[in-house]
Nucleic acid binder design. Structure first.
Length: 366
DNA sequence: AACTTTATCAACCGCCACGAT
DNA sequence: TATCGTGGCGGTTGATAAAGT
């Protein structure tokens, strides 16, 4: 049979992640950044393979994940992009900030495919289905094709964060422009650009649909020199596998709006009763971290009541050998991490430079 | 209430590409 | 050139919740 997985070979843990594991991984990555995944489990004290850690971070722990229901715009964009890109979920995800390829893939397979079929559209070809096809499709909805034939139902536009691109021309052919945009130059579409459209400093609105997850986060945009500023406003680690939206309840946001975006303070208050309820409903709840942030803010975890210097190095994107030297890492590991940290893959790296002096406070540990 | 079916989604598997040696 | 380690990707599985009977 096939190869043994790395987890089997090394007798590592598999399956669902515990809140403790999440915390360890999150702690590690936020402090030291994303470097060599294969060394992460060892350094973070996890009995997992590097691949598993990577996946957990990308699909679940990353602070810039949007979570929650897909909006109609997102849904439309996914369909448009799928028409062009086929099952290239990673490329599709690159156009939807805060969404993971896994999430989009699941959404496609569980919802969008069926939706299109209901509308009489072949989810593989995006062409109208004839009667027999509908029956056939319903029998085998799981079959997919890598690259779809162009649509013949007229021009198709894919909207990506304020910009709309012609994907198919009237003949149903994929336009050269769209090929260029979606396939050769994916970076043209700033995956974070849609956040620029968000109201300043507004993290969440009342009734905001928080995800069915152990971990929640929200983002805000900043017009700060056009740079994206992630807003880590709330973290909840628990072992509850799926808190419902209503479990998280209403989230209220207060915006302090002065002219300095760096000083904008967003405060997020969770209803105390809801917090209590969430906690008491699960005896497994191990940790609830509730963080608030200032405009540049990010906080270290409870127990380290100071901002970690290496993290500061990372999030500010400033080379600082001095800061690194203060880390407790072994010399070799440090150097390796220093060399291997992928700043572009970490969402906090694009903080604008004028935020470098910002304070990183420890917020509230519930 | 008990059981079955369906839907959802986190996580794993296996393959591939790429860089280092 | 061959081999190995690693990261990334898409397909698939399996656990769980929700809905249906």
């Amino acid at each position: 049979m096939g190869r043994h997985s790395c987890c089997v070979k090394q007798k590592l843990r598999k399956g669902l992640w515990s809140p403790e594991e999440d915390e360890k991984l999150f702690n590690y990555i936020t402090r030291f950044g994303v470097g060599c995944w294969s060394s992460v489990p060892k350094l973070a004290g996890l009995q997992r393979c590097g691949k598993s850690c990577r996946l957990r971070w990308i699909n679940y722990l990353r602070p810039d994940l949007k979570r929650g229901m897909f909006s109609q715009q997102e849904e439309d964009l996914i369909i448009s992009l799928h028409e062009v890109l086929g099952n290239r979920w990673a490329q599709i995800a690159a156009q939807l900030p805060g969404r993971t390829d896994n999430e989009i893939k699941n959404f496609w397979n569980s919802c969008l495919k069926k939706k299109l079929l209901k509308q009489g559209i072949d989810p593989n070809t995006h062409k109208p289905l004839i009667e027999d096809d509908v029956k056939e499709e319903k029998k085998s909805t799981e079959t997919t094709t890598p690259m779809q034939a162009p649509s013949s139902k007229g021009p198709t536009f894919a909207s990506s964060h304020g910009s709309t691109f012609l994907v198919n021309d009237y003949d149903g052919g994929l336009t050269e422009a769209s090929r260029e945009i979606f396939m050769s130059k994916p970076e043209i579409l700033d995956p974070l650009s849609s956040y620029y459209d968000f109201p300043m400093g507004v993290v969440a609105q009342s009734g905001f649909n928080l995800p069915v997850s152990q971990y929640q986060t929200s983002l805000k945009a900043s017009d700060h020199q056009g740079q994206f500023v992630p807003n880590i406003s709330s973290y909840v680690f628990s072992s509850m596998p799926s808190l419902t939206n209503s479990d998280h309840g209403n989230v209220s946001v207060t915006e302090f709006s002065d002219n300095n975006s760096a000083s904008k303070m967003c405060s997020l208050f969770m209803n105390n009763d809801q917090v209590k309820e969430s906690s008491s409903n699960s005896s497994n709840v191990s940790t609830i971290y509730h963080m608030m942030e200032n405009a540049a803010g990010f906080s270290s975890w409870e127990g380290e009541n100071k901002f970690d210097p290496l993290f500061q190095f990372q999030i500010n994107g400033i080379k600082s050998e001095e800061l690194i030297k203060t880390s407790s890492w072994e010399e070799g590991e440090l150097q390796q991490a220093h060399n291997s940290i992928d700043f572009t893959s970490f969402p906090l790296t694009s903080l604008s430079e004028d935020l470098t002096g910002a304070n990183f406070d420890v917020f509230q540990h519930i």
